[in-house]
Write a protein that binds this DNA or RNA. Structure first.
Lengths: 216, 216
DNA sequence: TAGATTGTTAATCGATTAACAATC
DNA sequence: TAGATTGTTAATCGATTAACAATC
């Protein structure tokens, strides 16, 4: 257990660093300084150094951090040692976006089963993923050793789906439904609430516009 | 200026409270206590009270908070006094999900123009929204008084789109692209990074599974 | 060596939590 | 009044920022 209590935000930033580093490596950049990396994600150099220290990665004052090494270290930290299976529930627009994105990028993290209520979709293959009927969630999740669930159903069904996921042994949930889920403490939930984000952006956009007016 | 520096998170929670309160009102609930509301969003009673105090809403020790009043007060705080126009750039799966959701829910916040590079989509009406070619972003944004932009394009194009939005006077951006945007300080950016969320959930799901094993 | 950066410690800041008097 | 809840202040906690010696 090298990393007992790593903050949520650090994990998120590590994921970002890796993506940027992969681009840099592709462009031939071998070394990078903390302030350069910070500039690319809109953070501070100290923050970058702290994050990398957290995962035990060290740089040198003259060369900064080795890009290829760092990518490998972040991978060793973030990625599952073996495959982690994911179930997607609800194949609407969001579900399809995820199905389209994942196969190519993260080989260790793959959506191995999708579920929907719509009989039109059941037992068809959508974006390369088999779609099952909602009722079979528990059965399939158990059989396929599903560890992560994505909830992309209407708010009214989200809690029922979450309960079924928890019962079948899922440990993490990404929730796109516009409702907070009630789950046991040992289940990690990541909420993605687009409506809330839109309202927040609208609010702060307006507030800043007002501030600007007052300054003038 | 009654609310000089309201925290980002408070605004987000207020948006959540309102949604829950609307459901409660529909079910006939007239009053609610802070701990009840807290239970529904997975927060604490003190947090709820602080949030409501921030917007100047007070309750009574015997009845708690008046649901209908509170909805109105949150609305007065969060919502724009007049219509705020939104532009969506990139009509993929995510874009379509947003187009499908918004018209019905938030009358003051409407997507009045969509943009895409695909000639198949240009000058067609998709989900009730006219789609323009990418080149016309600046022109249309100016003409329609766009205040908020949604970026739902591939990472490689996101910065270019953001720059164009900023030039045309947008004050807030909701960014679905998997890349951090560089924008002036007075522009509010809300990042929604699904890949990062998936990686975070996968990481913590695994970590908690490990903890559980160790306890046993 | 000089200079820039790293790793580490101390200080600051903000938000959350706890405590408690005021209220209905 | 008694009891539960509210509004408000003080204490705690964590994360960020600043400062600085160590390093190449």
């Amino acid at each position: 257990m090298p990393h007992p209590n790593i903050p949520d935000k650090t994990v998120g930033r590590l994921s970002l660093y890796r993506r940027i580093l992969n681009d840099l490596l592709a462009m031939g950049t071998e070394n990078i300084f903390s302030h350069q990396l910070a500039g690319m994600i809109g953070g501070t150099a100290a923050q970058v150094r702290r994050d990398l220290m957290t995962i035990g990665f060290t740089g040198s004052p003259t060369k900064g951090y080795d890009v290829a090494d760092l990518i490998k270290t972040i991978g060793g930290f973030l990625d599952a040692p073996e495959k982690q299976n994911v179930a997607l529930v609800g194949i609407g627009n969001i579900g399809r976006a995820l199905l389209a994105y994942f196969p190519s990028r993260r080989p260790n993290l793959s959506i191995v089963a999708a579920f929907d209520r719509d009989p039109e979709k059941v037992d068809r293959v959508i974006q390369g993923c088999h779609c099952y009927s909602m009722e079979r969630l528990g059965e399939i999740a158990g059989a396929k050793d599903i560890q992560l669930g994505i909830i992309a159903v209407p708010a009214s069904e989200a809690q029922i789906v979450a309960d079924a996921m928890v019962r079948s042994g899922v440990r993490g949930i990404v929730n796109f439904a516009r409702v907070p889920l009630r789950v046991p403490a040992h289940i990690y939930v990541e909420n993605i609430d687009m409506t809330m984000s839109m309202e927040k952006a609208a609010f702060f956009a307006r507030q800043r516009a007002k501030e600007k007016e007052e300054v003038q």
